[in-house]
Amino acid sequence: MNGPVLIIGGGPAGMALALALRRKGIESRIVDARPRGAAKADARILALSHGSKLILETLGVWRDIPHTPIETIHVSHAGGLGRTVMRAAEEDVPALGYVLAAGDLAAALDAALGEIPYTDNTPAPQHPDALLVVHAEGRIDDAPDLVTRDYGQHAVICEARGDRPHGRIAWERFTPAGPVALLPFHDGYAVVLTCPAADSARIATLDDAAFLALLQQRFGPRVRLTAVGARLVYPLGLRMRRQVTGEREVWIGNAAQTLHPVAGQGFNLALRDIAELADTLTGAADPGDPALLARYAARRRLDRLATVEFTGSLVRLFSNDIGPLRHLRGAGLLALDLCPPARSFLARRMMFGARAW
């Protein structure tokens, strides 16, 4: 036996799980089909919640990840009145979230692995010699119980500069073509511009001046943008396994679900899965015991399903220009802004998941 837990996939989810297991005294090893360090080249920008920061602190890697705090989140929608603002001070936390480069996160996790066995350039074994196999190899290609939802949208991501300091404010603007997010990142912004899938290639390849004009028109006048960087395009949609456990198997991270990036819940959900799995396996003589895995799946069901539904509902409710819905959205945002308990409920839901209360 080469170790009780085999982790397939050496990306951020797989490495974070290996560190979480080590902290609980559980041996693991990683096997990845890619060269070690491939995840350091990930160009995406992540928004991690305060709850995720606490998890990464327990893993001993947070101090090594460059990050920009989000102290205020401003949410609005185009074409109508109504907006809401959430502030870290109201929740008695230093920041609601943090913006960081996925490549920097991967580098910090990799550096912390130490002596944890890591085999790269190796396909997943057909007959693993382990008591438990954890799949963390990324996007789900096929599964008998796979749930998919095509939102007909792509995300065009880039970095941008504004005409004044960002003030650690994150902006989420819902428009009929999809949400636009400006996240404070270093001394500028990380931009997520959602657009119809059929139009994403054209938009991404506009010259800087034309793209900047389109982005400004979509976002509105609250922040004046002065420059943009190179653009990348990512398809958006939901891909989710109904069951995240099998016979001596568990799926985590994008191997369990990929979500629309609205509200930035994807990797935050993965970290909560990882923390729960490590806690569940602590002290177990057999980490692949069916009763143990069933307990893990039951503990994660509420948060997982609620996060998927929350994300999907935001996309369905806000990515259209139906008159009655537009007025309903505005009224809802205004009511949220006028009701501190409801606003706090949403803020804590985004920071800690569906079990925050």
Rank of each mutant, 00 (worst) to 15 (best):
V5E: 05
A16M: 01
L17Q: 04
R22D: 06
R23H: 13
E27T: 13
D32Y: 10
P35G: 14
P35K: 10
A38M: 10
L46K: 10
L48E: 04
S52H: 07
K53H: 15
K53N: 08
T58E: 15
L59V: 04
G60Y: 10
V61F: 01
V61L: 01
P66N: 14
H74T: 11
V75E: 05
A78V: 12
L81G: 09
G82W: 11
T84P: 01
V85N: 05
R87Q: 15
R87G: 02
V93Y: 03
V93A: 00
V93M: 00
A95H: 05
L100T: 10
G103W: 08
I116P: 00
Y118S: 02
P125V: 03
V147P: 01
V147K: 10
Y151V: 00
A160S: 04
D163N: 13
P165M: 04
P165Q: 09
W171D: 06
F174T: 10
T175V: 09
P184G: 06
P184L: 03
H186S: 09
V191C: 01
C195Y: 09
C195W: 06
S200D: 07
R202H: 12
T205Q: 13
A210T: 14
L212F: 04
A213V: 08
R218N: 07
G220K: 08
P221F: 09
V223E: 09
V223R: 11
T226G: 00
T226H: 06
V228T: 14
L232W: 13
R241V: 01
G246E: 03
H260G: 00
G266W: 03
A270C: 00
D273N: 11
D273F: 03
A275W: 07
L277W: 06
D279S: 14
T280Y: 09
P287I: 06
G288P: 04
D289Y: 14
A291D: 15
A294N: 14
A297C: 03
R300A: 01
R301H: 15
L302D: 13
V308C: 07
E309Y: 09
E309R: 15
T311G: 01
L317R: 12
I322C: 12
H327K: 11
G332I: 04
D337E: 14
A342K: 11
F345W: 14
L346N: 07
G353E: 04
